[in-house]
Design a protein around this nucleic acid. Structure first.
Lengths: 125, 125
DNA sequence: TCCTTGTCTAGACGGTTATCAAAGTAACGG
DNA sequence: CCGTTACTTTGATAACCGTCTAGACAAGGA
């Protein structure tokens, strides 16, 4: 269990759990957009479909039909997730595939991990 | 066999991690509002100040001066956090105290816990 | 080359949100 | 009672967001 530096460049001590120590305004401004992106039911479900796919990625053509929304609307939500740093996309042939950026999700999970504040629990990353 | 008529199918009362299996639209609709409430820098910082206070609670009079915002605006943000089920408030004498609802935060933390999902991304460092 | 399929972009429209000032409520102390 | 302090609610305004349609762009096949 070697915990190295976060690949996305978070300085040490930048994002401990919320309840351990009050975060700064700068940290809040940096973290809030990702949570905001997840604050929509469609995007939450989209991210879940991407994250839970055994292949580690999923084609937009498999996402769109799962919703009662137009293609452009799904594309818009995927763009929001992308710009929030939560997913990445890649075009192969005619199709575009999305995959999650696990480090981004892990950071948010640790941030909200209130158990880590009161109990000696190792933060498994 | 997938989750069908179970509104709350997991030990914590709602959902497994996002990456374990795709969440339903109903679960997404239930979880998204809390994330949406956290998707604002001011509210994220407010929640952090509440959660990290050693007393387990904090007076509004200690929150308001920490921001360059009017009292009503802070009150509004606290109301959003309250209606999202993330914090609770109690009036004692002249002052109102806020404290976090740890279960709500824990639920979100588990939801985003991609490490616990067993996804084969742990060695991407 | 043209057509088809998959995906994204642009623009518009209605609903929502963040913010403030002003007014309302609640509790304490003259 | 009355005034002060601590929030909260109300009302107004400007900005933002989710959704759509229409169109653009990319890739593959006839």
């Amino acid at each position: 269990m070697s915990k190295q530096d976060e690949p996305l460049g978070w300085p040490d001590g930048c994002c401990p759990p919320l309840a351990v120590m009050a975060i700064t305004a700068a940290d809040a401004a940096e973290l809030a957009p990702a949570l905001k992106a997840l604050g929509d039911p469609v995007r939450l479900q989209l991210l879940s479909m991407i994250a839970s796919n055994p292949a580690g990625e999923i084609c937009v053509c498999n996402l769109t039909p799962a919703f009662d929304l137009s293609g452009p609307t799904i594309s818009h939500h995927l763009k929001v997730l992308r710009e929030a740093g939560l997913v990445s996309s890649e075009r192969r042939a005619s199709w575009v595939y999305y995959r999650v950026i696990p480090e981004a999700l892990a950071k948010l999970s640790v941030l909200l991990d209130v158990a880590g504040a009161g109990t000696p629990v190792a933060m498994t990353l």
